[in-house]
Amino acid sequence: MGAATDRDATGDPALLPLLRSVLAEEGLVPPEAVTPQAELEALGLDSVRMTQVIFALEERLDITFPFDGEGAPPRTVADLARLVARLRGGGV
């Protein structure tokens, strides 16, 4: 995890619409609340909801999230976007 730059702060902007839709459908979060800075826990994503979101992202993007303990868990929507971008790029 490097220091956040402006570009890192929002992750891959192209991912935001996808995250918004998955968080709304699987995490039952209001789409308008999904901003890069929003904290996942504050959006009401408890552990059960978060596993649903991860499952949906894995299915849609054909990626595999690391198990708990392998790296810091994403705290914000931007963290999640960064993680997804990295997983799509093949590196963890």
Binding site: V48, T51, Q52, I54, F55, E58, E59
Partner: peptide, 9 residues
């Protein structure tokens, strides 16, 4: 290769 996460509960 994966099943929905709430399968067990």
């Amino acid at each position: 290769n994966r099943v929905p996460p709430l399968t067990v509960p």
